[in-house]
Design a protein around this nucleic acid. Structure first.
Length: 822
DNA sequence: AAGTTTAGGGTTTTT
DNA sequence: CCCTAAACTT
């Protein structure tokens, strides 16, 4: 019963775009200034296009111009475009740039991450397969908590199964689109540990379904499942999206690959029912028997694939031509970001990976400055070099915001922070422990989830005894038992406190919790059916936090950290206000979705005037005038653990390559001869990657050889003097940074310090209101005596500009510097 | 049930 | 060294 259908006119490239190229183009201005391959990438029309975009080759420009060109030429409606990026931040930037090119006609495009796009689809279609649209999204912490409980219940530890191990195996399997059944079919089921694992996998999946929840991997995997199990649903989206563009394609995993594959299938003579998929607008006047598959554009660079460890499959890009026969391939090799010296170094390093297509970045901006190398005696020595160099660049009028410091592991940031604080260099740490990972924030969100998705037992259990209500294991179990007996949800069981067979005090506590949840529900999801006002989320959340006693418990506490927790909760409330401003129609569900899918790093836009510290992974996709790659040592980069993993060292090399190619003008490579790890100091060896860089490209201020041949105890001043005055040295005393470091404010590794009030007050050296003025003499624990030139800044941020007798000029934060007035 | 001590383990990370 | 989680007290 195929073709009684109305043909669908899709304004596709085939329909309209074909011979546009003759005569004047509506998109002529979009093509100006593009180099020939970029031009080809923007204007090619066909079913599949692979853009191999080297670092800094202008791929974002190509993507945005390609989209703009499609829209401008009326080859596509905005609603027919689906662009997938790796992070929300990248998505936001892309949307903005397209908007700049073509204005408001950009409305209606889907530009988002894989996960956000899938959530949108799943919210619309959830009821098709046993979920409801108010499902919750479990982050890895949530799913770990769930798995932990299941491991305990199944006594799986007896078989050597740990929660972390089970979680990562399940995640890997889901990335391969396996489920418990399909895994069981090919697993060695005579192994009892395997049987238990399969049991856990199934139980985990069942628990998710019961809780009306998806984990991160499910968002992708279940969407693929949905499309495969319900072709008529998939067809809705296949017809809608005519142009699909995927950025960072080298970091997609199999599930994501499959999703794209499903979306780009041709629509077989579809069943004629007019599906109204959740009120989505389908452009569907009259229909053709078959609709060709969407046009697919992918952009990637296999040299920048650094996420294999979490399932990214580099074959998705290397085998693209096989999967999409007739695909056009465009190679972008001209680099618009870095100097030739930087590119030559990067090229030389990556050339050592044998399994790659040869590709050489080049630029016409010239050689530029030499790469600067430095070997410190310790990580603090290295950090001091970085700090001095940053100051020198800053004096030469490079803004702090144009500088970044990279490291392989988060723990390396501590030494840098210590020195930066003393040197009064403004910095921010990107990534690391996240705002939304904090216990108090997760508690607050669990309250909200308990309202939005009462089926989510995990959330309700989480808040059960937070704040302390005297509800422990025993009570929790009796609630669960009662719920099972009555065949009601855990949440609904709370409404019957008196039937639980627990003491009166606890009954009252449960009833109180139930009442608070009910009150907040009425605010955020009014039963009367009226639409909640924009303030509902903010109001509901503060009702939850206040009337539950959560806030009071923190206020009463004498744990100094609880003060910071209160501030964090205030910040969360502020986030809801901001959300309401941006989404007047936004419900608690929308809020929770946004919070679940938006990472901290996303909203950290380049704030003015701070140096950025981050891991090499986080650095992907960013660029800075000056880059410091630190800890260039064996066992760090390449990391020790990667040595035994297949493809590990190669991935580490790509990571290093990514780090190098972030730099526009200045690149610094530094390492330390000794590194303290886990409290023990051990000798460090220069990374093999250093050897791979042509020696004449690096100007060593202090080379590993210098340090070795002179022995570790000599002052850096002997070698460091020549470094243009910025090196400093410590007056030849041979005194090292080390145990004598002042205790520094403990700070959590979060992005924006001021914003999230994340500085947990700790006992800190505090010079308080030490009055200093020009002319005063001081003594510093490390730098010796010096004279104050000037004092700038206010309050806790007062900075003394000191000229030390032997150590040169330094800036010090008066409040915490190890100094005394003489 | 809540607070305290000890043992273990410690890449990389977006969503 | 520093954080987490389990074991152990109170």
């Amino acid at each position: 019963m195929p073709d009684r259908l109305k043909p669908v006119i899709l304004g596709s490239s085939a329909a309209l775009g074909g011979d546009r190229s003759s005569g004047e183009r509506p998109d002529a201005d979009l093509l100006e200034g593009l180099n020939p391959p970029q031009l080809a990438a923007v204007t090619y029309r066909g079913p599949a296009l692979l853009i191999v975009a080297g670092a800094g080759s202008g791929k974002t420009r190509v993507l945005t111009h390609r989209i703009a060109s499609l829209l401008r030429g009326r080859e596509a409606w905005p609603s027919q475009i689906l662009a997938i990026t790796f992070t929300n931040k990248a998505a936001g930037e892309m949307r903005e740039r397209v908007q700049q090119l073509i204005g408001d006609s950009a409305q209606g495009m889907w530009i988002s991450t894989f996960h956000s796009a899938c959530v949108r689809i799943l919210r619309r279609e959830a009821q098709q397969f046993g979920f409801t649209k108010n499902f919750t999204i479990y982050d890895s912490g949530d799913s770990r908590a769930l798995i932990k409980r299941l491991v305990k219940e199944h006594e799986a530890d007896a078989f050597g199964l740990t929660p972390a191990g089970v979680q990562s195996r399940i995640s890997k399997l889901k990335n391969e689109l396996a489920d418990a059944d399909s895994y069981a079919r090919q697993a060695n089921m005579s192994d009892p540990a395997e049987r238990v694992f399969v049991e856990l996998f199934s139980a985990y999946q069942a628990a998710l379904q019961r809780a009306n929840a998806f984990d991160f991997d499910d968002l992708i995997g279940q969407t693929v499942y949905l499309f495969r199990a319900f072709p008529h649903v998939a067809d809705v989206y296949r017809k809608r999206f005519r142009h699909i563009l995927v950025d960072e394609y080298q970091d997609t995993n199999h599930a994501q690959y499959a999703l794209i594959h499903e979306l780009t299938r041709p629509v077989q003579g579809s069943s004629g029912d007019s599906f109204s998929a959740g009120g989505m607008m389908i452009f569907e006047p009259e229909t053709a028997p078959e609709v060709e598959g969407a046009s697919l554009t992918v952009v990637g660079d296999s040299d920048q694939s650094i996420y294999a460890f979490r399932g990214a499959d580099i074959r998705n890009i290397t085998e693209f031509e096989r999967d999409y026969p007739g695909a056009q391939v465009v190679l972008l090799e001209q680099n618009y970001r870095s100097t030739q010296n930087i590119l030559s170094a990067a090229n030389a390093v990556i050339a050592n990976n044998f399994d790659r297509k040869d590709k050489k970045l080049w630029t016409d901006v010239g050689a530029g400055d030499a790469i600067v190398g430095f070997t410190g005696y310790s990580q603090h020595d290295e950090a001091q070099f970085v700090a001095d160099e940053i100051e020198a660049l800053h004096r030469a009028s490079m803004p702090y915001s144009q500088m970044a410091v990279f490291y392989r592991t988060n723990s390396q940031s501590r030494a840098l922070e210590e020195i930066f604080i003393r040197a009064a260099i403004p910095y921010k740490i990107m990534g690391g422990t996240k705002f939304y990972d904090r216990a108090e924030i997760k508690d607050a969100l669990a309250y909200a989830v308990a309202v939005a998705n009462p089926a989510d037992e995990l959330a309700v259990r989480r808040i059960l005894n937070r704040p302390r209500r005297g509800i422990g294991d025993v009570t929790e179990t009796s609630i669960a038992r009662y719920a099972a007996e009555q065949q009601i949800t855990f949440r609904d069981a709370l409404a019957n406190a008196s039937a639980l067979g627990v003491g009166p005090k606890i009954q009252a506590a449960i009833a109180q919790l139930d009442a608070v949840l009910a009150e907040a529900t009425e605010i955020m999801l009014p039963a009367s059916g009226e639409i909640a006002p924009p303030t509902a989320v903010t109001q509901g959340l503060s009702v939850l936090l206040n009337k539950s006693g959560y806030m009071d418990a923190l206020r009463m506490s004498r744990d100094p950290q609880d003060e910071a927790r209160l501030e964090n909760l205030d910040e969360l409330i502020a986030v809801t206000r901001e959300f309401a401003r941006n989404n007047p129609e936004g419900t608690i569900l929308d809020f929770l979705t946004e919070v679940a899918l938006v990472a901290d790093a996303d909203d950290l836009d380049d704030e003015s005037g701070t140096v950025s510290l981050m891991t090499m992974h986080t650095a992907k996709g960013l660029e800075y005038d000056a880059v410091f790659v630190t800890g260039v040592e064996e066992d760090l980069i390449p990391h020790r653990i990667s040595a035994n993993e297949p493809g590990g060292p190669q991935e580490e090399r790509r990571l290093f390559y990514v780090a190098l190619t972030r730099a526009r003008k200045r690149l610094h490579l530094s390492l330390a001869m000794t590194r303290a790890q886990f409290g023990e100091v051990s000798a460090a060896m220069p990374s093999r990657f250093l050897q791979e860089i042509p020696h004449d490209l690096i100007d060593w201020r202090q080379s590993p050889g210098d340090v070795n041949s002179r022995g570790g105890m000599q002052s850096r001043a002997l070698n460091g003097r020549r470094s243009g005055g910025s090196g400093g040295g410590f007056g030849g005393s041979g005194k090292r940074y080390g145990d004598d470091l002042v205790p520094l404010p403990r700070r959590e590794k979060t992005g924006d310090i001021a914003k999230f009030a994340n500085r947990i007050p700790a006992k800190v050296r505090d010079n308080g209101d030490l009055e200093l003025g020009p002319g005063d003499r001081i003594r510093h624990d490390d730098f010796g005596e010096g004279r104050v030139d000037a004092v700038t800044g206010e309050g806790a941020k007062r900075v003394a500009h000191v000229r030390f007798d032997s150590a040169g000029a330094k800036k010090l934060l008066i409040k915490i510097a190890p100094i005394v007035k003489l």
